[in-house]
């Protein structure tokens, strides 16, 4: 029997509203990563420094009043804005943050361009903005694991173990500061990765470009600083800017002395990066068309 004699039926069921069409793309971008053991292991590794924060919370709340442990516990750092800023910007987690940004972010648009599925997706009732939102949200969710999510868990532990909300009222900045840091820092990183990913057809090229810009950029800043002793070069270091941003948002002093990382300059860096990324995305998706 010829295949076309097997019948075709029309569809007359309901359709989801236009505004929700990004959701399947978001889901398809997220779920495959949870099937990758190495990636999940990486996410678990990223949470290790936060176990230190949880341990501190436990010691302060449960053993702080015990006579035998009092002396030891008082010597330990308390859980506050300063500690959260340190946890957010420790070199280990920043490194893993960049790895995840490369792993997930490099293929966001580039893979669709490589497989030529971009015009298949945009040929559906999905707008460019919805498409970019779905892709960006997928990366954003993973970057939350390095920013707001562990902070929230730490706060829940703290409040849960003390049994009162007094600590939270006193350290509310931990929450809103981290939220602000997440929105500006990792948020800009998402935009940057989207823009970078839209500029190539190969995720590998995007990953290498990110490494060149961020890792080697940091190294180059270090070398130039070592030679010239001009601290202004750190303006171009993404990891330094993220650290400065976290400290600014949480009201903690930065772990490095650099007068050039003034709040206005940090704001300028992230605003500039976000604007440049948005301009690239606008050019690729709107004015010239990424599909050519």
């Amino acid at each position: 029997m010829p295949v076309y004699e097997q019948g075709y039926e029309a569809y007359d069921g309901r359709r989801n509203p236009l505004g929700s069409r990004w959701k399947p793309l978001f889901r398809e971008e997220i779920l495959p990563y949870f099937k990758k053991r190495r990636f999940v292991f990486l996410l678990v590794l990223a949470l290790l420094p936060w176990l230190y924060g949880v341990a501190l919370t436990f010691l302060h709340t449960q053993l702080g009043d015990a006579d035998w442990a009092k002396d030891l516990v008082t010597k330990l750092p308390v859980v506050d804005e300063k500690l959260v800023a340190k946890l957010l910007t420790n070199g280990y987690d920043l490194f893993l943050l960049f790895i995840v940004a490369i792993w997930v972010g490099s293929g966001l648009v580039a893979r669709d361009r490589k497989d030529m599925t971009l015009d298949v997706f945009l040929g559906r009732a999905v707008t460019s903005v919805q498409y970019l939102w779905a892709k960006g949200a997928a990366l954003g969710v993973f970057l939350l694991l390095f920013s707001f999510l562990p902070t929230l868990i730490l706060v829940i532990f703290q409040v849960g173990l003390t049994g009162e909300a007094g600590w939270l009222a006193e350290h509310l900045r931990v929450l809103w500061g981290t939220l602000l840091y997440t929105a500006i820092g990792p948020g800009t990183l998402v935009l940057f990765m989207l823009a970078l990913s839209s500029m190539a057809r190969s995720p590998r090229v995007v990953g290498l470009a990110f490494i060149a810009l961020v890792f080697f950029g940091d190294m180059a800043c270090g070398v130039v600083y070592a030679i010239t002793k001009v601290s202004a070069v750190w303006f171009f270091s993404l990891s330094r800017e993220l650290t400065a941003l976290a400290c600014l948002c949480l009201g903690a002093p930065p772990p490095f002395a650099s007068a050039d990382l003034h709040p206005a300059l940090v704001a300028l860096f992230f605003a500039g990066l976000a604007a440049a990324s948005a301009a690239v995305l606008w050019a690729r998706f709107s004015r010239r068309g990424v599909l050519r």
């Binding site: 359709r15 989801n16 298949v120």
Partner: peptide, 8 residues
Amino acid sequence: LGELSGLP
């Protein structure tokens, strides 16, 4: 693709 075209 069906979902992107609005099918539940």
